[in-house]
Design a protein around this nucleic acid. Sequence first.
DNA 1: AAGAGCCGCAACCGCCCACAC
DNA 2: AGTGTGGGCGGTTGCGGCTCT
Length: 357
Amino acid sequence: MGRAPCCDKASVKRGPWSPEEDAKLKSYIEQHGTGGNWIALPQKIGLKRCGKSCRLRWLNYLRPNIKHGGFSEEEDNIICSLYISIGSRWSIIAAQLPGRTDNDIKNYWNTRLKKKLLGKHRKEQQARRAATVRMKQDNSATAIDQVTTPYSWPQLPPVSHVPVMSNPILVDQEAHIKDQASLRKLLIKLGGRFSDHHHDDYNHEQQSNINNINIANFCYQPNMSSPVQDQQLVFDNTVTLNNNYTNFDVMTESLSSANMMYQGLDCLDSTMDLDQFVYTINQSDPQRPEGLNNNLYGSMERVSGSSCGTSSNSGESNITWGDITSLISYNPMLSDFEPSQQNMLQDFAFEDSITAL
DNA sequence: AAGAGCCGCAACCGCCCACAC
DNA sequence: AGTGTGGGCGGTTGCGGCTCT
């Protein structure tokens, strides 16, 4: 036999909480705590609410020191950086932002942050398309050449891959790790998440890799008092996610650097926008642009085949793009790649994340 | 002024894992 | 050992308010 059912869904109240309900819940928890049993709690205080609903209300709204709205630029940057690195693990991201709840961050990302980024990106695309049209009109004789010539993406400042041990910001990284146990817990938690994915062998090894990460080399430095550009998110000493974003202008240049990568792929049609491009990759292997076989996609297969045991026997990888995003963040074997390739993959993963939204 | 459409956010849903029974 | 719930999480929905036409 299991436990008793948590609540009778037909008899519990749903929808918005009234001030009276809030007051009851808050007052009780402040005096007695949750008692470790959310399901029993509403009955104790005479609330016709599901225990889960009470828990949610407390965690997301009534809990002390909760901040709502008014996200700062620094918080934006942290959210973006973590999202790029670990994806939609809102609870983990929230843990890095005191006073913020996972629900709040999730809502903020979904309703504003991603649009903020996409909006800029789309404007750039529209400007490029308009420029292409103008070129066609100006010189119809060479129009075809211009369409097939890769677009000259704007040059960006180089994004350096900074080895952990030589990075002055991280020299004293041990001092930043005040709670190694919690970090380990976090890493295990992150690793555990991979068990949700489809490849058991890969997951098993991935989990091992994560558990074996030298904690001293895992360091996230929110350092709210310092310039955001000094922040770095480091997973192991092989994958360093540079966080040089001082504002969204710079942030969206990351998208442009993904564009620059396309330039290196012979296949690229300059009229294809990023969304179409990533969609093509996601949708179907046969449709993926030819150049990817030898460049990006080939690299992916190296990643999966060489270290993760993902269908490596056949030489065919059934790893998904989503898995690649995870690999980019965690796979130690990425250190085999040139830094530029790592940055390329990271940019692609970010672009994919944006596009998939 | 009013209806349509959009946006932001609180709350719900459904899934997974750990663990009580 | 098997079953099923509690807690936790990410994804989604629905509603109220705002803006636009």
